[in-house]
Design a protein around this nucleic acid. Structure first.
Lengths: 352, 352
DNA sequence: TTGAAAGCGCTAACAT
DNA sequence: ATGTTAGCGCTTTCAA
């Protein structure tokens, strides 16, 4: 029953004829209520209703170049982090009656470019969540269409990031309070701006609070990434580890468990972001929670503001507050912990 | 740097002028290569390239009503199941140079309708993953635009579903092989077609293989849903439970753990779908794996086929094969298991 | 093979 | 307040 409608959809001309007015009046009645007599407007609406008239957004877009669509580019739709982000963006967009066109870079810079090309002529603006493209390429896009970038503070492109500094500080302080004296950080993608920010902040605060730090990796920011580097982390006698993100942290926990360590007694683990899954692990993950959904919404709202004429605030990223959520994966340092039974880990998997 | 482009984008007129041909020839050169002399075509392409000409999809859409966009409606973007689905759809779409417009029903039938309205005039066809609308409403949509529905076999609308029957059979057989004699099924949303299919299949096969069944719920299909009904499940002395989906199953595991039961020795748990998270729990979840990504791709491919003129195959759903993935959450039945320490569970959360 | 011209449905001056 | 008249950029007859 997937037939085309038998009658072509009614247009403003049809409505105009029946209502006995000019097409432009019908147009006004919808596009700019108030610029038309209340009575005529009412009549027009009535006729429109009766005829089942629906404005054609394509035609409107052609003459106004307003498509009421914004593009959302993510580097991996399957990543739970982006799922939340998408929802936030989605909500903010529909609040203003915009629709979001989704593009998935699948972790490839080339695909990202390509997808962006396809998006460009259709959308009024673009939100990019963690790009795999060069800053140069980003700037080139920004020249063509309003753009807002997530998780990456660039000087001249509006961006929204989380307060990694405060997050790292909270994590370090928490671990110190638990008696830990040394922290191992498992690094994410080298190209990741966020990774740099987190490590630096962690390192600085640790020094400030008198803790040691060690950095391993980088790994792909997935469960497999964390799992794969688990042995290396444990071999060194780490008692507290902070993962680049939740997925990595969860991978580390899995590795620890395989090595027969007890969690969290033998090893404290902290993640970043607080994806939904963080709550479901055993033990549930202590993590620096980011307002992911809010990030998506903030990005879209600001983009929309720019589209409505606001001056884009470049030069200074919007930084969103984070908060440490203490769950079960962190505990008092155990001085005579079970030593890990290493060498049992095998890995397979892909990037994120 | 979010300025509008200083020069308006070049059009076919610009290209035509420089190439010394008529605009319509330029149009043909792109829209219908072959219907134009090879040399002129080459010249046109060269000029276009040099001018940086890009066809305007909006204008094209206005005269052809082909937007090269398809709508994808999900009932909850944040649900990992849909994340995978989206990716599949996304990939299939871009293979044919289509773009996907995402809409999120946020579990509300009303929002779903509304979002659909917004989508309708813009897309060439729609894929709906698990609708919250009535079949009547669905049929009404199907009248207006090619539609394909997931996880819900309707007589007269093309649909793709998984082989719940085979999945349930595999689950039951597995549990029987482990010595279980009774299975508790935790039901999902009443309105869910899938829930009905799963329960019926489970029930039938169990009877056939000589096992008892019991059905509890319905619950919202989330971790919280499973967690919340955990006590009820355990109180009855269940040794094997099958959840409506993975999230529910994982919730049950959490409840069991809170009740101090050992997993999987004291309780075997099986889920449905095999979302990414299923691998990350402790123990990792045994589940009836659905080819989620493939489902999304299949839906889109079939939709595209219809758009290209194929006759929609209604009346018989595409059913996709599933397979039982045995991981750590199922084990031999334990005749003298630890009895659960109930009454410790508190719940909060929302639907999925 | 190519060009001229008429739309696609709507918006936006410019008149009245 | 409303009507007239050009477009927006592309496709598509219809002629040449």
């Amino acid at each position: 029953m997937v037939d085309a409608p038998r009658t072509p959809a009614p247009t403003i001309y049809d409505v105009a004829k029946v209502a006995g007015v000019a097409p432009s009046t019908v147009s006004r009645a919808f596009a700019r209520p108030g610029r038309v007599n209340a009575d005529t407007a009412a009549r027009i609406r009535a006729v429109a209703e009766q005829l089942g008239y629906r404005a054609n957004p394509i035609a409107r877009a052609l003459s106004t170049s307003k498509t009421r669509m914004i593009g959302l580019m993510v580097s991996d739709v399957a990543n739970p982090f982006y799922a939340e982000l998408i929802r936030g963006a989605q909500m903010a967009a529909s609040e203003e009656d915009y629709v979001v066109v989704l593009a998935d870079a699948q972790e490839s810079g080339a695909l990202e470019r390509e997808a962006l090309e396809r998006l460009l002529p259709v959308v009024e603006g673009i939100v990019i969540g963690s790009s795999r493209m060069s800053e140069l390429a980003l700037r080139s896009i920004a020249k063509q269409v309003p753009l807002i970038v997530l998780n990456h503070a660039l000087g001249d492109i509006p961006s929204v990031v989380t307060d990694n500094r405060a997050g790292a500080r909270a994590a370090v302080a928490h671990l110190r309070d638990l008696g830990h004296t040394s922290i191992t950080y498992v690094a994410g993608p080298e190209a990741s701006w966020t990774d740099g920010a987190r490590w630096r902040a962690l390192h600085d605060t640790a020094r400030e609070l008198g803790l040691q730090t060690r950095r391993v990796g980088p790994v792909v920011p997935t469960f497999e990434g964390g799992l794969g580097i688990g042995d290396e982390v444990l071999a060194d006698g780490a008692t507290a580890v902070v993962g680049y993100n939740d997925l990595v942290a969860i991978g580390i926990m899995a590795a620890a468990r395989r090595a027969r360590m007890r969690l969290p007694q033998d090893l404290s683990v902290i993640g970043f972001d607080d994806i939904l899954t963080a709550r479901l692990t055993t033990p549930p993950l202590t993590t620096v929670a980011a307002p992911i959904r809010f990030m998506g919404a903030t990005a879209v709202r600001n983009l929309l503001a720019v589209l409505h004429g606001a001056k884009p605030r470049a030069g200074q990223a919007y930084v969103l507050p984070v908060k440490l959520v203490v769950r079960g994966s962190t505990a008092q340092r155990n001085r005579n912990r079970t030593s890990p039974a290493l060498g049992t880990t095998s890995v397979s998997g892909s990037a994120s």
